[in-house]
Design a protein around this nucleic acid. Structure first.
Lengths: 207, 207
DNA sequence: AGAAAAAGCGAGTGATCGCTCGCATTATAT
DNA sequence: ATATAATGCGAGCGATCACTCGCTTTTTCT
């Protein structure tokens, strides 16, 4: 029998069962982060909530940090899917409509699982700036810059990279702070006003 | 001599010794946070670097969290001192000049001990939203709102509270991201341009 | 059916950490 | 000088936590 050597590295899951285990672990991590906070999120507890043993956990994730990173990446992927779609949708729009749409999407995206968003923003000690988070920021910046460049004629003379930095900072901050102050920002109308105002600021700035 | 009851604590003499201990502990905490990161910042290590015993540490700080909070508060106080002075200075200025000054100050304030600022922003798990940090945000918001109300005639019709929310979010985000990307944002000229652009955006928004 | 690989298990290990406590040293009061 | 209070000390306790290892169960392949 030409059997492969019994390689038993802590690595990928090939069977459906193991993929379910991986999902359960990530989901459990997210749940505990939200419901019990970062401090209570231990690997033993994650395994317990996932209905899995610690040993199995360490077959798929080399460290606790890797698990938290998986949660962050899953959340960022959800947001980026929406954001990318929005930029495709907006590519042919004039500035005013485009900005309004993008601002709306930014606020919507930040409101995906707002409790998780808050925990990730407030409680997770980002050790060495995760490469994936950097990539996330870089992609958003690139998308905005590309849009601005394509609409240069409708705008004043302006460095696209700098403008992208300012616009992204401003829009993201409004969306972010809106989530964190959700108590006061709950009403439908407040959000509408917020979108109007932010759009006005950004559009006014660009032209 | 009829002595006053023994409980008449003067804050001189021997208290200088203990105040020095407290200062050394806070300073050591800040140093370790910056130089070794949050994870390596244990109470034993803090005491060691402060040149003090763990026992003494716990005479002045009830928990590790209290020490980190002291560092945060010290940093925030430094910033607020500058910010309050700026608002006093700006009270009689017209919008354009005032905003330019405030944006400049915001960026300067974020650049006080940028390494510490980064650690506090990125690595400290804010447990139950520190009351003092809330107070900090609230005061900034109130100062901006008060200024906007006093200059209502030079502005379009606008809800001062909402405008303050947007302006503070935008300005703070630009200042904050500038610190975090300090590698790319280092040059004198870039900062000047940044101030110009941010001022333009905010002023354009307000009127 | 049998064998091997993949997946799963969980008590246990070593290390760390926050914090306490009994005692020593230093300053102040009488 | 003596008493008292204030300040400082640091070994070590109890708890927790990330992670391992030897083993069992399930799935896949022939």
């Amino acid at each position: 029998m030409a059997r492969k050597p019994p390689t038993n590295p802590r690595k990928n899951a090939s069977q459906a069962r193991s993929r379910a285990t991986v999902d359960a672990l990530v989901e459990a991590t997210a749940r505990i982060l939200v419901r019990e906070g970062f401090e209570k999120t231990s690997t033993n507890r994650i395994a317990e909530i996932a209905g899995v043993s610690v040993g199995s956990l360490y077959q798929y994730f080399p460290s606790k940090e890797a698990l938290v990173a998986a949660v962050i990446n899953r959340h960022n992927d959800e947001i980026m899917t929406i954001v990318r779609a929005a930029f495709a949708e907006v590519a042919d729009m004039p500035i005013e409509r485009a900005v309004r749409r993008l601002v709306t999407v930014a606020i919507e995206a930040h409101h995906i699982d707002p409790d998780l968003h808050r925990v990730l923003a407030e409680q997770i000690p980002r050790s060495g700036h995760l490469a994936e988070v950097e990539a996330f920021n870089h992609e958003v910046h690139a998308l905005v810059r590309a849009y601005l460049e394509s609409r240069r004629k409708e705008m004043r003379k302006i460095d696209p990279s700098l403008a992208a930095f300012i616009c992204v900072s401003a829009i993201e901050a409004v969306a972010h702070n809106t989530v964190l102050n959700q108590a006061e920002m709950r009403s439908e109308k407040t959000v509408k006003t917020l979108v109007d105002e932010t759009t006005r600021m950004v559009v006014g700035y660009l032209r």
